[in-house]
């Protein structure tokens, strides 16, 4: 592995670790708010991946300078896609948190294990207790 390869792929490797940190929180933690934060971390790391792909060496922000022909611009297309994704991401977060608030009102808890147990007890009575 050359130094060029390591510098050229460093971003991707860190982004993979960030994604997996988010995924781990979603899978391993029972608290619903924490799960949503984990989902947010995962989502933001996808944004980082896209913006990394769109960077051009020596480039500048894709806002055209009139009359200048030798300017290098970074790729604007990933920026547009991620702009849309950020806004959609925050609306899904809002819906998720609203659901969590309703769950708390109904069950009195937002821990996944306690929710499952409450459901089992509601369905099978005392026999459903684990």
């Amino acid at each position: 592995m050359s130094a060029e390869f390591i510098i050229g792929h460093y971003n991707y490797w860190i982004i993979v670790i960030l994604m997996m940190a988010g995924l781990y929180v979603v899978l391993a933690r029972g608290n619903l708010v924490k799960k949503l934060v984990g989902l947010n971390v995962f989502q933001t790391s996808v944004f980082l991946l896209y913006i990394t792909i769109g960077k051009v060496h020596g480039g500048t922000a894709p806002i055209e300078i009139k009359g200048a022909y030798d300017v290098v611009y970074s790729n604007p297309l990933p920026h547009v896609l991620i702009l849309t994704a950020i806004v959609v991401g925050v609306s899904t977060l809002a819906v998720g948190l609203a659901l969590v608030v309703r769950v708390r009102e109904t069950y009195g808890t937002i821990e996944e294990d306690e929710l499952v147990e409450a459901d089992l007890v509601a369905e099978f009575g005392e026999a459903g207790k684990t």
Partner: peptide, 21 residues
């Protein structure tokens, strides 16, 4: 398999993105 960071010749930066610019 990914192109190097900030590679101006990567597939993403040469085709459709460049067209928009």
């Amino acid at each position: 398999d990914m192109p190097n960071f900030a590679d101006p010749n990567s597939p993403a930066n040469t085709d459709v993105g460049l067209q928009y610019i």
